[in-house]
């Protein structure tokens, strides 16, 4: 009996020393610091700042800041999956989106998300794509009001605010569509599959239910270039199919040359695709437009350095002060030569 007590005291003393306090390490946060960073909004609207915004104002902001990626009606899928669609007035009544049961339908954000706070929080913290946290509080309310109107959750003349957002929650189409009845939140949760460790003659035969279609063999590039050229195995040569080649070829078979490396390192590819319009025009489209023009180098150099808008729509391209003159010259010469990649 005695020994454990003695040992216990010793352990307590050690713990005390270890936890004494971390003198000189860290400091208390000021209220202003906490306010600057604590921007999250919970489903019970803890953290939601007061403010308001109308559907009408939201539409204007949407076209200016959001539509290039998400489409005028939140339905585009050329950059991100669609935000709006596949919910019904009946879903707004039941609070569970019927198209999620059926399958086949595109799962839009508004069909999946259960809480309106989530949309407010994410627009506020992460949007727009190339300028996160640049929206004012009222702009966030307005953009969200426009989205909710597109989904027919609020009427055309609605003004969304911290006062009425809880009522909107009661009309979210998938507010009852979430379950936490599963064993994957706690470490000792109950699994939902129950395989057994059979060792011999566990079934009569092994039937292949699915195999890789021939057209997909080369979809991920030449596999002979994705394995070692010695050792117990080799990669199977898989020529890429002509149609699906560009993306795979760009990433798989070439070490990016200097221009493409500069574009990737400076975030240019976040808005410009090689051959595809994203937020801004594709590099190949820029090359095509200015092909053969005498002043291409000076014009494009200025555009990259100072930013601008108008040539390709109203979304402004931000200035790029971080690029060196040599880098800009490399990019422009590459564009002038046809933006080959």
């Amino acid at each position: 009996m005695r020994l454990p007590i003695v040992f216990g005291c010793f352990a307590a003393a050690v713990t005390l020393t270890a936890q004494a306090d971390y003198a000189g390490v860290g400091r208390d946060a000021t209220p202003a610091e906490v306010a600057a960073w604590d921007i999250d909004v919970r489903p019970d609207f803890l953290g939601l700042p007061p403010g308001s915004g109308s559907v009408e104002d939201g539409e204007e902001l949407w076209i200016e800041k959001c539509s290039s990626c998400h489409g005028d009606f939140g339905d585009a899928n050329h950059v991100f999956p669609p935000l709006i669609g596949n919910t019904t007035t009946e879903d707004i009544e039941t609070g569970h989106v019927a198209s999620l049961k059926k399958g086949g339908a595109v799962r839009t954000t508004i069909a999946k998300v259960s809480t309106v706070s989530t949309l407010w929080d994410f627009i506020n913290r992460a949007m727009p794509w190339n300028a996160p946290k640049s929206l004012s509080t009222d702009q966030v309310y307005a953009i969200l009001a426009y989205l909710l109107n597109l989904a027919e959750i609020v009427p055309n003349d609605y003004v969304l605010s911290n006062e009425n957002i809880a009522e909107v929650q009661q009309r979210m189409p998938n507010r009852n569509g979430m379950t936490r009845d599963h064993g994957m939140w706690t470490i000792d949760g109950k699994p939902d599959t129950h395989n057994t460790a059979c060792m011999k003659n566990c079934k009569k035969e092994a039937t292949i239910l699915s195999s890789l279609p021939d057209y997909a063999r080369g979809a991920n590039g030449d596999l002979s270039k994705q394995n070692r050229e010695y050792g117990p195995v080799r990669g199977v040569p898989t020529p890429e199919p002509g149609a699906a080649a560009p993306a795979a070829a760009a990433t798989d078979d070439k070490t990016p040359g200097p221009p493409t490396a500069i574009l990737a390192a400076n975030g240019c590819t976040g808005c410009h695709g090689m051959d595809q319009k994203v937020v801004g025009p594709a590099f190949s489209h820029v090359a095509e437009k200015y092909h053969g023009q005498a002043d291409i180098v000076s014009r494009l150099s200025g555009r990259i350095r100072n930013g601008g808008s108008g040539s390709w729509g109203s979304i402004p391209m931000p200035p790029q002060p971080q690029l060196t003159d040599a880098e800009i010259q490399t990019i422009v010469e590459w564009l002038a030569a046809g933006a080959k990649h």
């Binding site: 919970r42 059926k102 954000t109 259960s114 929080d121 979430m178 994957m184 939140w185 706690t186």
Partner: peptide
């Protein structure tokens, strides 16, 4: 004292089941 329902806890990273319900906060990797 409550979970946050962040974007990646509602519109993404929620597991859609055959009955149309989404398993939220499926966190442990089995």
């Amino acid at each position: 004292d409550k979970p946050w329902n962040a974007k990646d806890e509602t519109s993404q990273y929620a597991d859609l089941m055959p009955d149309g319900m989404q398993r939220q906060y499926a966190t442990i990797q089995e």
